[in-house]
Design a protein around this nucleic acid. Structure first.
Lengths: 116, 116
DNA sequence: TGACTATATGAACGGCCATTCATATACTAT
DNA sequence: ATAGTATATGAATGGCCGTTCATATAGTCA
């Protein structure tokens, strides 16, 4: 990929990540519980077994935001491949889509914690 | 630190990072050359010996942006602790301030490269 | 079918901020 | 001192986007 294009894509990615509401949503979908299973499936699992899924309503409650706002931002996150969703009856369950987001959040957290 | 505050600070950090001009500046200050020295100083060095410093004019040329724009954005980056500077005569040399930015950029790059 | 719940979506508004232009400051050299 | 070079900064503006309000869609249950 060309250099400028890579930077452009990084910009887009970080733009999506750098919003208070979206951060709260993603962090609410983040499970820091470590998976200790050593089977091949777990090792390969794209979600690394640290994924949590939550329906829209629960996310609204947890981050204390309106249903409309959460739905809008979930769409943004989904369009940008940060999350994916699964439908079950009335409800739609969302979950983080890959490990990079977790790494990103971890590094960002390290950074802000380090400055006293 | 309280949870909401941490998220707020992550938001601020990512907001700074998620701009095309600022990304180009930071990446121009990034040196991927690995330091192979094993001395104690190198091991401890906050900059990890992968730091490059460049004066404002050179950054302008390299990223093809106006002096005013680069100066403005360098100030933003400095106020946010992403970079620091050193004065030498007429010139002011800027450099990345810590390793988290490099990690952040690396992860973001991995993420955008992976999607096809 | 109709009432209810869960989620999605379109339109509109307001605020933030990246960029530019003009100018100021600071240092160098003659 | 004066001219020239390097960098910083203030003001102004135009565009983007986060949020809200209103409403639509989709599924459940009786």
């Amino acid at each position: 990929m060309e250099n400028e294009l890579v930077i452009k894509k990084i910009e887009e990615m970080l733009n999506i990540a750098s919003d208070f509401t979206r951060l709260k949503i993603m962090i609410s979908l983040l499970d820091d519980t470590k998976c200790t299973c050593t089977c091949a499936t777990c090792a390969e699992c794209r979600h690394r077994h640290c994924m949590i899924e939550k329906c829209v309503g629960d996310i609204c409650t947890e981050i204390n935001a309106s249903q409309s706002l959460v739905s809008h931002q979930l769409k943004v996150l989904k369009d940008s491949n940060f999350v994916d969703s699964r439908k079950e009856g009335n409800r739609v369950y969302y979950f983080l889509k890959d490990g990079h987001i977790k790494d990103l959040l971890r590094i960002a957290t390290d950074h802000v914690m380090e400055e006293e």
